[in-house]
Amino acid sequence: MATTLTDKPGRTATGHSGRRRRTTPRESKNWLGGTISWIWLAIVIVPIYWVVITSFKSQSTYYLSNPMAPPVEPTLDNYRLVIESDFPLYFINSLIVAIGSVVPAVLFSFMAAYAIVRASQNRFLRSVNWLFLMGLAIPLQATVIPIYLIIIRLHLYDSLLALILPSIAFAIPLSVLVLANFIRDVPKELFESMRLDGASEQTTLWRLAFPLTRPAVVTVSIYNALQIWNGFLLPVILTQSPDKRTLPLALWSFQGEYSVNVPAVLASVVLTTLPILILYVVGRRQLLSGLTAGFGK
């Protein structure tokens, strides 16, 4: 996929191969859908293209050159400035928060989803499930003020842990819903035979359910990681010192500081997006199914 990502759209070669592969000759051309799709592609690509080329221009040539033309003398100065502005630290902060939230969130959600599916008659678990479903319908952002109060009272204000704890909570409802859907698809006979072999529920969970639903676990993890990586509201409310910034917050303050240096600001946009873009190139299918997880099922 690495090559297709950099391919320019509209290449005739891909168009031809598309026509050749058409397996349903009865289908007439969908002109309207096609036109809108190509126009929308241009709308999507133009800003991204502009960001990338501008990030390689020097500040002085930026104001003079044609904005859509690639830089005549590409420079890495903007990237150097961004990296020297502590972005490696913010990157590590984001990484700690993302991993520190996603691993417990997915583990806890998996355990809960397993219990909810396996003991669907249990009254306690039914109420737990109901509670999580309510969590899906409520805009959790509305709870940030009490979260702020709780974090202050726990003496966690301005720490990365302050971001991790609510992030886990926010991730749980959807993760439980999606994982439970997948655990339900595991054939009942498999659980039954594990039980007859005398396996405990713990063993069944880790040896049977977890490996069988691994694609769903990966999908849910990626979805949550992306949400947390891009999160802005919790960092803005729960942290304060520059050395606790995560990337979106760092982007915002960098932009405030260097607002006249557009190429440098855009270089910071490219740099913070790069890790996710690499992830996208490597695991596109998982990522896309992750993004629609639970909604399409």
Binding site: L140, T143, I172
Partner: peptide
């Protein structure tokens, strides 16, 4: 089975109550 299974939901429940349900009631308060 259900007794043992119910425990599995406790960690998720605790975090969600602590940073979801309590804040929701807290915001009203």
């Amino acid at each position: 089975g259900s007794g043992a299974l119910a425990w599995l939901a406790v960690p998720a429940l605790l975090v969600f109550v602590g940073f979801g349900v309590i804040p929701l009631l807290g915001v009203l308060a």
